[in-house]
Design a protein around this nucleic acid. Structure first.
Lengths: 205, 205
DNA sequence: AATTGTGAACCTCTTCACAGCT
DNA sequence: AGCTGTGAAGAGGTTCACAATT
């Protein structure tokens, strides 16, 4: 099958979420134009994205909400549960542990790690905090899809190396540093300072 | 001057940060190739980006670190301080208030707002928490560049409307909802679930 | 000799225009 | 008539190849 771009993937996740609401509202069909209005994208963009996954719609009618949701989920998510481990249980780490948007999206944080002895053993929002030393072992006993870095910047690279060594293939990094990782690892940096500055620059222009 | 794309802006912010470290290390000049190695970009990309701001480098020598940093800051940041207000002092809001990466980048959170009476009046990391009702007034008495939405998703649109009404032109939204805002407002959505899923999908492909 | 700066080629993503279907 | 699906055109962003510079 054709490679699906990361931009398409982000939009498809929005479609899935939107379709979920529509199904809950009891809506059976939806047109690309309606989806466009809700998501603030264009109808053509949406049809192009959906066409990656086959011919799902009915001309003159639109898409069956449940069917479209199932098709998109099947191609994009595939697994029933995406398993995440978190490094760093500071303010940001706690915010991530308590983030409400995960449940519906099949995202599950299966373990957290921290250096601070006082935090080790505690349970935050149902997730147990382990020591860094036990990370490799814990990860190997679980099937983990994503490692999240929420530690201070000076520890970022060390944690990244640990995640790579554990065999995890996806990293989300919140530490404001450029991390080195092999090309085979998919690394996403979320740097709050950069996001804020970039909104400021755009808004001003 | 030519319009500078938002992708370029994000990269330039990384250059500025990198140059800051280099200046601190006492390094006087740097080549595009060295910057490329540090930032994990290509040297041509870096030279193209820099060329938006004039001819700053010296063939055979490279760029003067301090000069380049000043030029980039002058074009991109312009102001001495970028002023931010935060809506929602929950876990994520607190994480943002305590985020270490802001000081150096001239980002300053000038006020926070929350609905919870128990939080109003408190000071978190030097920032005072006000009631929602006083937001318009507080914002009008300050010059505010960016409003940050860190409230539960059902309150997201309401807060967005309030920010728009206050005259602020840039919004960073962490609530997992599609917000409506006039085209003149620059809105950036940071949806953790989407970021995580998208890393998972890419990593799997 | 080594590095910057840049027009042109290339690639990727979005939008247009419209054929095809019910 | 109205909606989907899509080849082709267009826009935007990156990389190539190399002229200009010290």
């Amino acid at each position: 099958m054709k490679k699906i771009s990361s931009k398409t993937i982000s939009r498809v996740i929005v479609y899935i979420r939107t379709l979920e609401s529509l199904v809950l509202e009891g809506k059976n069909t939806v047109s690309s134009r309606e989806l466009a209005r809700i998501t603030d994208l264009t109808d053509v963009q949406i049809r192009k994205d959906i066409s990656n996954f086959g011919k799902v719609g009915t001309p003159r009618v639109g898409y069956n909400t449940t069917e479209l949701k199932n098709v998109l989920e099947k191609f994009i998510l595939r697994k029933n549960e995406i398993r995440i481990v978190l490094f760093g249980v500071g303010n940001l780490g706690k915010a991530i542990l308590r983030y409400a948007g995960f449940g519906k999206q099949k995202l599950q944080i299966v373990a957290a790690f921290d250096r601070d002895k006082k935090k080790i053993g505690k349970v935050v929002n149902g997730v147990k905090v382990h020591s860094f030393e036990t990370a490799l072992e814990v990860i190997r006993n679980n099937t983990v899809d994503i490692g999240v870095i929420a530690v201070p910047e000076e520890k970022g690279q060390e944690v990244a190396d640990l995640i790579v060594a554990s065999g995890i293939k996806g990293i989300v990094n919140f530490a404001p540093v450029s991390l080195r990782a092999p090309k085979s690892i998919h690394l996403r940096n979320i740097d709050l300072a950069i996001e804020f500055l970039s909104v400021y620059c755009d808004a001003r222009a």
